[in-house]
Design a binder for these strands. Sequence first.
DNA 1: AAAACGGGGGC
DNA 2: GCCCCAGTTTT
Length: 212
Amino acid sequence: MGVAVPPEYTPVMEALRQMHGVTMLERRSSPYDVLIATILSQRTRDETTERVFRDVKARWPDVTSLAAADEDEVDAVIHSIGFHRQKARAIIATAKQLEEQHDGQVPSSMDELLELPMVGRKTANCVLVYGFAEPAIPVDTHVHRISNRLGWVETRTPEDTERALVKVLPREHWLEINQLMVSHGKTVCQPQRPRCGRCRVAPHCARAGVAD
DNA sequence: AAAACGGGGGC
DNA sequence: GCCCCAGTTTT
């Protein structure tokens, strides 16, 4: 009986690496910084988020100061990003929750992270992999879309994609896959018109040259 | 399963 | 001006 030949994950990741030149260590930071920065980054562009995160850290450098921050003041500092009111409320509540329930530390388990406001699986997995260097795959819309286009998974939601990917993708690629596919998704494998003619992954892709 | 949240960047 | 976003929560 024919056992299906698994996709060639390593050549794909190598092609992505060549196209996008990710410098992994730049994203490594303390679990707390990853947590706050990732909440702020939801549905907003990186460049904007980076500036806003620096401003937040300058004004409220640690958990204790952020826990005591005034919501209107935080809202004013992060006003240039989307969902600023919810995010201001969320990061203050997160800081308070860390102090009251976790001795001021960021928890390192998925279940505990999911208890924090505005922390879903994608954000929690960012904290685990970038903050704690634990094996986890943050799946956003880019990872979801590209994994399906490649034929690695056949899933309807990012959550389903995450659960499928952790079963098939070798662990050596988990740390890189999010940033590589996000970069790829913004510049080459875009939602509407993927530029397959310029894509070095196309030879390995189930839908190269085919629209969704 | 779908709506709501939102300012900023690209065209 | 209009369309599109590195999600999560609520209905």
